[in-house]
Amino acid sequence: MTAFWILAPVMVIAALGILFVRKAVHAALLLAVVMMSLAVLYAALEAPFLFAVQIIVYTGAILMLFLFVVMLVGVDASDSVVETIRGQRVLAAIAGLALGLVLVLGLGQISLGTAVGLENANSGGNIESLANILFSRYVFAFETTSALLITAAVGAMVLAHRERLTPKATQASMAAQRVKDYAERGTHLGPLPPPGVYARHNAVDTPALLPDGTAAESSVSRVLAARGTVRSAPARAEDIEQIRGQIGDAPHAGRDAVAPATTTEAAPATGEDDSE
């Protein structure tokens, strides 16, 4: 029972976390905690085969599948806070609380007596005993399972498959398209500009600055722009000034020479300085 009393709070806290975390990835990781703890509880309940299957099938296969889909759908696809049905969250919480109370009180009141234990059933080894039952009494269900699995596999393939309706673009056709775009709309022929590289900050989420100090929007990935995590270089320069002010005005001799140039000019010009 030691394992139970250690793992039960962990499992309940992790499961409650699934209800409250904003991001799907965090929910998947919390679910992994619950499933691993469950595997240990199976081992404590004399089910070594289910212990292994739980780890291999649930945490190994199913959770990996979840993580794959989370990555495909977009890590940032978090929940919306808007309720489509008014008061639904409160009502759901009340219903859940009622169900929990009924289950806990009801199950807590029945007395199951002492457990028989599986020493007898597991006498020939847990896996051998399970196989004996599985391939005798439950053999029809087992065979039906194979039909279910193959149906699921074919169904997933049909759902995930997308027919290619247009011919695949080759390198030559893409180059021709670029030149055509340039001739018709004046789109830049060359590759897109790289993100900004500055003296104090260098990351793909900070756009490069054009000669007039404005940010070159094409220099950061569209995905980052859609997520709204693009940072502005002039704002960072202002941050540096602010932090310098907080630390106390004790700059080095070398920095002193630079400081007047950055403080007297406008913020965009500071960024321009950095980019060189």
Partner: peptide, 23 residues
């Protein structure tokens, strides 16, 4: 050893999953 605690834990986890599906 009594298995009531395990069954109660399973009830709690089921409730949490239920509320999650609803909310």
């Amino acid at each position: 050893m009594n298995v009531t605690a395990y069954v109660v834990l399973s009830g709690i986890l089921f409730t949490i999953g239920c509320v999650g599906v609803l909310t």
